[in-house]
């Protein structure tokens, strides 16, 4: 099976590989795995608590080319977005962008899961219950 040029590009020049300080309250960490193939993916975000914008995103993935490309692309996409905007990214968007074949769709699912897990972790740390926050602002 041939990888698309975009997958090969992300694989050879992965964007945003690295690590953020897991202990920081500004940082959310998502560690997810795909038991189908044994891949593991860690995606981290640093969020500006004022603006809710994801200012930095880093990833580290142990897996196949498609898993690395999916997570690399995911960090590119979420950088500069607000947390809520980032949650709108769907695995099918990644599939389309990277022209992933059916057998590699689970890699994109993993990337979407990683985004959600990272944002979930950040929310938990900052006890963001969006509704409660909104209510607090309103009062």
């Amino acid at each position: 099976m041939a990888y698309s040029d975009k997958v090969i590009d992300h694989y050879n020049n992965p964007r945003n590989v690295g690590q953020l300080d897991k202990a920081s309250t500004e940082v959310g960490t998502g560690l997810v795995g795909a038991p189908e193939c044994g891949d593991v993916m860690r995606l981290q975000i640093r969020v500006n608590s004022e603006t809710q914008v994801i200012e930095e995103a880093k990833f580290k993935t142990f897996g196949c080319g498609s898993a690395i490309a999916s997570s690399s692309l995911a960090t590119e996409w979420i950088k500069g977005r607000t947390v809520e905007d980032a949650l709108a990214i769907k695995n099918t968007d990644i599939v389309k962008e990277l022209s992933l074949p059916p057998v590699k769709i689970h890699c994109s699912v993993l990337a979407e899961d990683a985004i959600r897990a990272a944002i979930g972790d950040w929310k938990k740390k900052n006890s963001v219950a969006e509704t409660a926050n909104a209510a607090a602002v309103a009062h």
Binding site: L31, V40, R42, H106, V109
Partner: peptide
């Protein structure tokens, strides 16, 4: 598993325990 486009919803994300993932990573 999970290769179908529509298969995502059915997938149970908690299948792999977090501590095992940490170790694997």
């Amino acid at each position: 598993a999970g290769t179908e486009q529509g298969g995502h919803d059915k997938k149970d994300l908690s299948r792999v325990p977090a501590d095992l993932l940490e170790e694997v990573f």
